[in-house]
């Protein structure tokens, strides 16, 4: 082993001195030597632990809700076909309980699509307003507005829906007021900020030369937006809408407060209805843990879980298209 000279400063008896000191390079510079790598290892383990906790949280949610949600079919013998296709929900009937969740599944999808139908044009329109029509002041006003809308808690949306929207629908449109219509309006306001902000990002990341190229050809702003920008941003815009729908599908309390919660399939938009989330919210506390009815609620929870996976896959598909 070769020995070399290494100048070392040390504080010795109150004076600074430089000493010629012999420590072989091998000892100084190889990993085996005692140096401060232990702190590095500790830190790394710490953050890896955090990552592991996230993975295990996700996995345990899937496993717990998966097994619990399947119990009604496996243990209680509820027919999966009946659960998904029958419109008769009557679990409390002692003689012949019925477990058809179709009205709620239908209600969830209906209210989600209807909400998207209103919120998508508004959200995308707002995004275009912020990026194309008035990029400076428009953004300055709308951006905080959107952020504040996100901040309003869902129970507050539900409460306003209950006290303002429901009576309004009852008085001016018809029906009881508690209806698909009310649910869809409340939800569309709730998902509007989600759609707007993601659509704004999608529009904002479009290359500048797209616009310039189109304007240079003499196209008007509307023609540019319609024929060039929207098609180019389409995957991003669809992602925005899908994310909004995912939020609408899983929203519970606000919808529950305005939709009426009846177990029948609605025949019109003014009919009261129910969704998976609202039935879970209402009945989870009132049913005995482990009973068949309770277990079917967990099956509905499983549907929500599966749907949120489906939404993620859809978004993944869209974003892979965006890269092309």
């Amino acid at each position: 082993m070769q020995i070399c000279i290494y100048p070392i400063m040390t504080y010795f008896r109150g004076v600074w001195c430089i000493m010629e000191k012999i420590i072989p390079a091998k000892e100084r510079l190889t990993k085996s030597s005692k140096n401060r790598m232990d702190g590095e290892l500790r830190g790394k383990i710490l953050v890896i632990l955090c990552a592991v906790i996230m993975i295990s949280a996700t996995i345990s949610i899937t496993i717990f809700l998966g097994t619990k949600g399947l119990q009604s079919f496996i243990k209680n013998g509820v027919s999966l076909i009946e659960f998904l296709t029958s419109t008769h929900w009557n679990p409390t009937n002692q003689a012949s309980p019925e477990y058809g969740a179709l009205p709620f599944i239908f209600g969830s999808f209906a209210v989600t699509f209807l909400a998207a139908l209103i919120a998508a044009p508004l959200g995308i329109g707002a995004a275009i307003f912020m990026t194309e029509i008035a990029p400076s002041w428009g953004r300055k006003i709308l951006q905080p507005v959107v952020e504040l809308l996100v901040g309003i808690p869902s129970v507050v949306y539900g409460f306003i829906g209950l006290t303002v929207l429901v009576p309004f629908v009852r008085a001016h449109v018809g029906g009881l007021g508690f209806s698909l219509l009310s649910g869809m309006i409340v939800l569309s306001v709730m998902i509007l900020p989600t759609i707007t902000s993601i659509a704004t990002d999608a529009m904002g990341t479009l290359p500048k030369n797209l616009r310039e190229g189109s304007y240079a050809l003499g196209a008007t702003r509307w023609q540019t937006i319609r024929k060039v920008l929207i098609p180019a941003a389409l995957p991003g815009l669809l992602t925005a809408v899908v994310l909004g729908m995912a939020r609408a599908f899983g929203e519970a309390l606000a919808v529950q407060m305005v939709i009426g919660n009846v177990r029948n399939l609605p025949s019109s938009i003014l009919d009261a209805s129910a969704t998976l989330t609202t039935i879970i919210t209402l009945n989870m506390g009132h049913t005995t843990y482990g009973s068949v009815e309770n277990n079917t609620l967990w099956s509905m929870g499983l549907i929500l879980l599966v749907m949120s996976f489906a939404f993620i896959l859809l978004i993944r598909y869209l974003s892979s298209r965006r890269k092309l």
Partner: peptide, 19 residues
């Protein structure tokens, strides 16, 4: 891990409540 974060972020809060 990224997928896990994505899943956690998109779970409806009622589902988290059930968990």
């Amino acid at each position: 891990i990224r997928s896990c974060i994505e899943v956690l972020a998109s779970l409806p809060s009622i589902v988290i409540g059930m968990f």
